[in-house]
């Protein structure tokens, strides 16, 4: 299972990657593989203020609908519009083209409290 070391993770299988003063959020390779074929992604409104751990998006596969949680508190400033036509990007390229939304964090240090790649690998191992 691919777990890049250039970003951090949550125990609920989101990844978070700094981009300037923003945090880009998506779901991990393990998460997309567990969900199966993604057919719809419901993204948050731009401008919405979110708490860490708040359900802010939904990824729907053929089988099920799965909530996506904000890794850090802040404001949603951009969403991945490409997913409206190509939700399968979440399966094919979960760490790049399949990103979900960007957050301007309320507290810049919140990112550091997320799991690093090694910590997340343990979470995946336990659930495999």
């Amino acid at each position: 299972m691919n777990i890049p070391e250039d970003r951090r993770y949550t125990a609920s299988h989101e990844w978070a990657k700094p981009e300037g003063n923003l945090i880009v959020v998506g779901i991990s390779d393990f998460a997309q593989d567990s969900l199966g074929d993604v057919v719809f992604v419901e993204l948050p409104e731009v401008g919405r203020e979110v708490e860490a751990g708040e359900a802010v998006a939904v990824v729907e596969s053929v089988k099920t609908a799965s909530d996506i949680y904000a890794p850090v508190a802040g404001t949603v400033v951009e969403v991945n519009e490409a997913l409206a036509d190509e939700p399968e990007l979440v399966n094919g390229d979960p760490y790049n083209a399949g990103w979900l939304f960007k957050i301007e964090p309320a507290d810049a240090s919140a990112y550091e409290k997320l799991l690093d790649a090694a910590g997340y690998a343990k979470v995946v191992e336990e659930e495999s």
């Binding site: 199966g36 074929d37 057919v39 596969s61 053929v62």
Partner: peptide, 11 residues
Amino acid sequence: PVQYTSITKEH
């Protein structure tokens, strides 16, 4: 098995 490769492909 719930799937081998992809539910959509198998369907």
